[in-house]
Design a binder for these strands. Structure first.
Length: 279
DNA sequence: TGGCAA
DNA sequence: GCCAG
């Protein structure tokens, strides 16, 4: 058990925001599986200090929770109007999470035409069937090899529907090194995205999520149906969009309007809508 | 634009 | 959401 002191970090907002799917809260404690290990974390609401029970060390969580991000500097960049000002002040301490690339890739392929409870269920079934047992009911996320070598029927039990075949193909692409995930860190936002979109089942939105959440490309601005509604409501179809605001147009607008940290802007808008709906 | 699977 | 049509 050890502590991590934090500033501008809210554990509840960050783990609840819908970016990650393997954490659950029980009382004051969040329990999750990350990096092949179990972690239990709580936060002192007065001091912001984290209490951590895990074999993973302080440095791991510093990276994972992006405590290296200078939040005030990021706010200064993205605080372009009243809407964003309200969101960042209300949910201050919400941070992006730096996810493991492979797990992030599969998680967001599963997110296609799905919802958070179902994605969580899919991932926990996948882990229970193909991962390593860490504790009772807690399993590591399966490796690419584990998913690539399994037969389709077994995977079908995880209720992923049409996503199953895509997951197997992606696992194979990783195993055969058709795609080398670590190399995407070297590429810029657009090239990393293009590379991911060569996989079946990864389009614009999913690729944006993966480069933003796993590859440190904070220009990622994923536009799902929620963000589409938010932007239409707050910023209108005109004059920004010269006609109907399509998802593609909204994405380009968001990157331009909020600048190089627009991924954070998206996260705050998204979380606000999740908690409050459209106001 | 509708089918995907549930 | 992605993709084939």
């Amino acid at each position: 058990m050890y502590t991590i002191s934090t500033e501008d970090f809210d554990l509840d907002y960050t783990l609840d925001c819908g970016q990650v799917f393997r954490w659950d809260k029980d009382g004051d404690w969040w329990t999750g599986v990350v990096n092949n290990a179990v972690a239990r974390i709580s936060q002192n609401p007065k001091t912001g200090e984290l209490l951590v029970d895990s074999s993973l060390d302080e440095d791991f969580f510093y990276q994972y929770f992006r405590l290296d991000d200078d939040l005030p500097a990021i706010f200064e960049q993205i605080n372009k109007d009243e809407h964003m000002d309200i969101a960042i002040n209300k949910y201050r301490g919400l941070r992006l999470i730096r996810q493991e690339p492979w797990e992030c890739l599969i998680s967001y392929m599963l997110a296609t035409a799905s919802n958070i409870p179902r994605i969580k269920k899919n991932i926990s079934m996948l882990s229970a069937m193909f991962g390593e047992k860490l504790e009772d009911d807690l399993y590591s996320f399966p490796k690419a090899e584990d998913l690539a070598s399994t037969c389709c029927d077994d995977l079908c039990e995880c209720k992923m529907g049409f996503r199953t075949a895509r997951i197997i193909k992606a696992a194979n692409a990783v195993v055969t090194e058709d795609i080398v995930l670590d190399e995407l860190f070297q590429l810029d936002y657009h090239d990393a995205k293009k590379e991911l979109m060569s996989l079946e089942g990864i389009g614009e939105k999913v690729a944006d999520c993966i480069v933003l959440f796993a590859f440190d490309k904070m220009e990622g601005f994923p536009v799902d149906t929620h963000v589409e509604k938010i932007v239409r409501t707050y910023y209108g179809d005109d004059p920004f969009f010269e006609g109907k605001a399509t998802k593609t147009k909204i994405g380009n607008w968001g990157r331009h309007y909020f600048g190089k940290y627009c991924g954070y802007a998206q996260q705050y808008l998204f979380y606000q809508k999740r908690l409050e709906g459209l106001v």
